[in-house]
């Protein structure tokens, strides 16, 4: 991935979150995230009902993924939390 792995220690996998030596210690950063989330919630509420993101159907290109060559949509992940990283393979 040209832009580098977003989640260090595991390419761009998140399992490193649970195995790394990290310990939460930076209240300022937590506050930043809290403000960001709160701001988004407030902005979206002010605009009326919060709308789902536009749907899509894309093919999984990772041959090691359990969903390889399947069509993947955000709808598949309802009633779960889904995080999308937008990278540039080149």
């Amino acid at each position: 991935m040209g832009a580098g792995p977003p989640f260090p220690g595991s390419k761009w996998g998140i399992e490193a979150f649970d195995s790394g030596p990290w310990a939460w210690h930076d209240g300022a950063v937590l506050a930043r995230w809290f403000i960001l989330v709160s701001w988004m919630a407030a902005a979206l509420s002010a605009a009326g009902q919060v709308q789902p993101m536009p749907d899509f159907k894309l093919t999984d290109a990772n041959s090691n993924s359990p969903r390889y060559q399947q069509t993947v949509s955000p709808r598949d992940y309802r009633l779960q939390i889904s995080a999308y990283y937008f990278g540039d393979a080149g």
Binding site: F7, W12, G13, A61, Y85, G87, D88, A89
Partner: peptide, 22 residues
């Protein structure tokens, strides 16, 4: 709730997908 993480490659970069796969 289960947390699922996905990546989305830029449309113009399809030819480089193999660089990501390991």
């Amino acid at each position: 709730l289960r947390v699922e993480i996905l990546g989305i490659n830029m449309a113009s970069q399809a030819e480089y997908n193999q660089l990501v796969v390991d």
